[in-house]
Write a protein that binds this DNA or RNA. Structure first.
Lengths: 200, 200
DNA sequence: CCTACCGATCGGTAGG
DNA sequence: CCTACCGATCGGTAGG
C-alpha cells in the first residue's frame, strides 16, 4: 500500500532509516552515505527517504543524534549511577570497551569514525560532531578531575590530557582490530587505559 | 603549450598531482578525493590527471605511497640511526609529535585519517593502508620488545599492546586539536606516550 | 511514500 | 596533456 501512512508508522520508518544510515555511515563515512543506496537497501524511493529529513545534511545530523543516543545508552547509562571520580571512570571504561568490542554498528564506533572524517572539514555536520565529542570529553574530564582531587590520581596530572588519552585509546579499537590485526584490541586498550589511570 | 612534454616534465607533473591529492585526501578523505576537483585545482583537464595513473584507484594507491614517503622522511629517518630500544622509541615519539604538531598536510596526519576511513572497507586501497600501518606497527613493536628485554620496561608488558597504544595516541592529535579544541594536543600526547613507556 | 524528472558531477574513454 | 564525449549516480523537486 503506497501513499501516506499514520504518524506512528512514519516514525517507525524514520527510525529504520536512521538505523540503516548509521550502519552505512559507520563503514562508508557520513559523507559516503548516499540517499540512493539507502533507499534501495530499504526498498524505498529516494524521495521517500529524503522526505523524512528534508535534505542530506539534515539526514546526517539526525543520524549523529541517533548514534549519540545509542552510545549514551550503552556506555554512559550503565555507569551513571556510580560514585563520581575513579570508580565511575573505571566503570565507563569497562562499558566503553565492552561496547567497542561488540559494536552496535558494522563499521565499529560511529563517533570515532565520524571524528576522524570531519575533524578538518567545516559546516554543520562538523559542528554537530564536535559538540557531541566535546560534551563527552567534559564528562570524562570532570570525573578525572574529581579523582585527582580525591587523591586517586597524581596531583600534577592534567584532567584534560587524561580524558583526551582515554578517548584516543577508545577510538583506536576498530582500526586496531581491522588494520593491525589485533583481535584483542578492546582488552589491550582497557589495559592501557588503566595504566593511564594509575590503577592497574 | 599543450600536448606531450618531456619525461622529466611529466614526472614533475606527477609529483605535483600527488602533492595536491594528498592535501585533498587529508581533508576530504581518499574517497572524497575526485579527479575533477583535482584537475581544476591544478589547472589541468581530468584526462591529464587520470592519464598519469590509469584509474582513480591507482591514483589513491600512488597517493598512499607518496604520503608514506613523507612520513618516513619526517618521523623514521631522524630516529633511525639511534640505539634500538627505548632511546630510539623516545626519539621516534618526539619526531612523530613534532610532525603531528606541524603537519605536512592541511588535514593533519594522512595515515590516521586514512586508517579510520578504510578500516571497515575492503579492496586494494584498504589493503595498501593496512600494509603500511602494519609495517609501522612492527617497527614500533620491535623497539618496544627490545626495551622490555633490556629491562627498560616492565617484563610483563606486551610489546604489541604498547605499540598499538602509541599509535592510538599519535593518531588522536588532529581530532583532539580540531574537535576537542586542544591546541597543545601534540604535547599532551607526548606526555601520555611517556607514561605508557614508563619514562616520565 | 510513489513516479518522473532536473542539472551537476562522477570516473573513464576516444582520438588527437 | 587537450577537447569532447559516455553512462551512471549524485542530491533534490514537482506533483500526486
Amino acid at each position: 500500500m503506497a501513499g501516506r501512512r499514520s504518524v506512528a508508522a512514519a516514525r517507525d520508518t524514520r527510525v529504520a532509516i536512521l538505523r540503516a544510515a548509521a550502519d552505512m555511515a559507520s563503514i562508508d563515512g557520513l559523507d559516503g552515505l548516499t540517499v540512493g543506496r539507502l533507499a534501495s537497501e530499504l526498498g524505498m524511493s529516494k524521495a521517500g527517504v529524503i522526505g523524512h529529513f528534508g535534505s542530506k545534511t539534515e539526514l546526517q545530523l539526525a543520524t549523529i543524534e541517533y548514534a549519540a543516543d545509542v552510545f549514551r545508552a550503552e556506555v554512559w547509562t550503565p555507569a551513571e549511577h556510580l560514585e563520581p571520580g575513579l570508580p565511575r571512570l573505571l566503570a565507563i571504561c569497562d562499558a566503553w570497551m565492552a561496547y567497542a568490542g561488540k559494536p552496535a554498528f558494522p563499521g565499529g564506533c560511529f563517533f570515532a569514525a565520524a571524528s576522524f572524517e570531519y575533524d578538518s572539514k567545516t559546516g554543520p555536520v562538523h559542528d554537530a560532531i564536535a559538540e557531541r565529542v566535546q560534551r563527552w570529553h567534559e564528562r570524562l574530564s570532570a570525573d578525572v578531575a574529581t579523582a585527582i582531587e580525591a587523591g586517586e590520581l597524581p596531583t600534577d596530572a592534567s584532567a584534560d590530557r587524561i580524558a583526551h588519552s582515554l578517548w584516543a585509546l577508545a577510538a583506536s579499537v576498530t582500526p586496531n582490530r581491522h588494520l593491525h590485526r589485533d583481535t584483542d584490541a578492546a582488552d589491550h586498550v582497557k589495559t592501557s587505559m588503566r595504566i593511564l589511570l594509575g590503577a592497574r
